[in-house]
Amino acid sequence: MTAYSGIKVLIVEDEGLVALMIEDMLQDLGCEVIASVARVSEASGIAATAEINLAVLDINLAGQPSFPVAEILRDRGVPFIFSTGYGREGLPHQFTGSPVLGKPFSASDLQRTMAKALDCPAID
C-alpha cells in the first residue's frame, strides 16, 4: 500500500504508448485508472461525471487543446496535471499556475508532480 493507493485517475493522452506508460506508472503507485481516453469530447464527458481524484492531461490531443477538459475539472475542484512536451509556454493565462509534467518524464517525476497537484508530501 502506498500514499497514492486508491486515488482514482483519468488519463487523457492521444499517444497510445505514452498512455500505457502513464497507466503503468500510476498502477505501480497504487492508483486506480478510471479511464484512459484520447479525445477531448470523450474526456469532457468523463471529467464532468466520473468520480475521480486526479487527471493527467496531454495538452495537445490530435491538434485539439485539452483546456476545455481542464476547465471542467477546475470547476468541479478536481486536481489535474498537464503533460506536455511544450513546457509552461503552451499554457493559457488561466492555467499558468497548474502543475506541468514535461515529456519525457520518469515515474519519480510523475510522483513529485502528483504530490504537488494533490497538495501532499512527495514519497520517494
Rank of each mutant, 00 (worst) to 15 (best):
D24C: 13
G45D: 15
G6I: 02
S36D: 00
V100H: 04
S41L: 15
S98I: 02
R112W: 05
L17Y: 10
D28R: 06
F95W: 07
G45W: 12
F95P: 06
I52Q: 04
K103N: 15
L91D: 05
G16W: 05
L101Y: 11
D14Y: 04
V56I: 15
G85E: 12
S36L: 00
V18R: 06
E15Q: 12
F95I: 01
S36Q: 00
F80Q: 03
A47E: 09
I11F: 10
I72P: 03
I11N: 02
M114N: 13
D58L: 03
P92Y: 09
A3W: 09
D14C: 03
L54R: 04
N53I: 08
L110N: 02
V69D: 10
Q94A: 06
G45P: 13
A62N: 10
G87A: 13
V69Y: 11
F82C: 07
S36M: 00
G63Y: 03
C120R: 09
V37F: 14
Q27H: 15
L29E: 15
D14M: 02
G102H: 12
E42F: 04
E51M: 09
D28V: 00
G97S: 12
R74T: 04
I59P: 02
F82V: 02
T96V: 10
I22K: 03
Y86L: 14
S36P: 00
